[in-house]
Computed example of a mutant assay.
Amino acid sequence: MRYTIQHPYKAYRDGRLFGPWDQGDVVDLDDADAAWIERDSPGVFAEDVDETADQQPAPSGPPIPERQGEPIVDQGDREPPAPDYEAMDYRELQALAKQRELPASGSKDDLVARLQKADKAAAADGART
């Protein structure tokens, strides 16, 4: 479904980047992702959702994954880039830790280390399956 963004938004969830989006951007999301984003940041979407989006012709050119809530995937054999936790502010790191059900206390360095450790554990779990 197509949504209009009402305020700037950017978040990571399960290794996926949503955004960065600015006010007025139009994004295509599935219902589950849209529901999660609305819970994460109430009011991020316009109240009037374009119900006719599926009937309109698709835009020309390749899709832009960041603008559609799709995972960012590098071409080739490389892994997707890890989030740049050092560039995030303390509150963003706390929110990300809470989203991933990790402790959100401690210094910025503690949060960065905790998130990086969780990323490595998740990557190791994914490699085993």
Rank of each mutant, 00 (worst) to 15 (best):
P59D: 04
E86S: 14
G61Y: 12
Q68D: 11
P65G: 03
D74I: 02
V73K: 02
P83L: 08
G69N: 12
A87D: 11
D84K: 11
L96S: 09
E92P: 00
D77I: 01
E92H: 07
E86C: 07
A95M: 12
Q68F: 01
R91F: 13
L93D: 01
I72N: 10
Q75M: 08
P57A: 10
G61L: 10
E66F: 00
A87R: 14
P63R: 08
P62Y: 08
R67Y: 08
A95I: 11
A95E: 15
R78G: 12
Q94V: 15
P62R: 08
P62V: 05
P57M: 11
L96D: 04
G76A: 02
P83E: 10
D84Y: 11
D89A: 09
R67W: 10
V73G: 01
E92W: 06
P71V: 03
E66R: 02
E79D: 15
R78H: 12
E70L: 15
V73Y: 01
D89V: 05
P57G: 06
P80K: 10
G76E: 09
S60M: 09
Y85L: 14
L96Y: 12
M88N: 00
G69P: 04
E86N: 13
S60Q: 12
V73I: 01
M88I: 02
R78C: 09
D84P: 04
E70H: 12
Q68Y: 04
Y85C: 08
E92L: 13
E92S: 15
G69R: 08
Q94F: 11
Y90T: 06
R67C: 05
P57I: 07
A58P: 01
L96V: 03
R78Y: 13
S60P: 06
D84E: 14
A87F: 08
P81M: 10
E86Q: 14
Q56T: 03
Q56W: 05
P63A: 07
E66N: 01
L96K: 02
E70V: 00
P71Q: 06
D74F: 03
E79V: 01
Y90K: 00
P57T: 04
A87C: 09
D74E: 06
E70T: 01
I64S: 05
E66H: 02
Y85A: 11
A95V: 13
G69S: 11
